[in-house]
């Protein structure tokens, strides 16, 4: 099973996006989805050690983790957190170039059907093509 890690500048946003993605993917398998965000002191921001800690724990219980950062320093901080991992764990981590909510939801759905890391990551990236006004 592949896990999904949402990284946002806001702890509330991270948890909310996590909840939506979890609800949309509530199938036969329970996908590990975690949201991490905020500066750890109640404010907006991102903390590399916090991302690293959650990511390492998730990797110990999953085949791999797709990380979905919101933007800017969430992306840099996610990359820095991956760089702190052992190389074997880093190789099981993918940072998706995806819109954070749509990407998390699509990744969670794909993970719930038992797809591998590459497929879940691709599905998250494909979420950028989701249209909202075409139908």
């Amino acid at each position: 099973m592949v896990g999904v890690l949402v990284v946002s500048h806001s702890e509330d946003a991270a948890k909310g996006i996590r909840d939506i993605a979890a609800a949309m993917s509530g199938g036969a398998r329970e996908v590990p989805i975690i949201g991490v965000g905020g500066d750890g002191e109640g404010g907006l921001g991102v903390s590399v050690p916090r991302i690293f800690g959650v990511l390492r724990d998730m990797l110990s219980e999953t085949d791999g983790v797709v990380i979905i950062p919101d933007l800017g320093s969430s992306v840099l901080s996610s990359r820095a957190a991956v760089a702190l991992l052992d190389p074997a764990d880093a190789a099981r981590s993918v940072i998706a170039d995806a819109p954070v909510l749509e990407g998390a939801m699509m990744a969670a759905v794909e993970a719930s059907i038992g797809s591998d890391l590459a497929a879940v990551a691709k599905c998250a990236s494909d979420a950028r093509d989701l249209r909202k006004n075409d139908h």
């Binding site: 404010g43 590399v48 916090r50 840099l76 901080s77 820095a80």
Partner: peptide, 18 residues
């Protein structure tokens, strides 16, 4: 590095930390 990465928000934290 670890202090800067956990406390300095924005991109400066991971960049200076690295």
């Amino acid at each position: 590095a670890m202090t800067v990465m956990s406390v300095v928000g924005g991109s400066a934290g991971p960049l200076y930390g690295t």
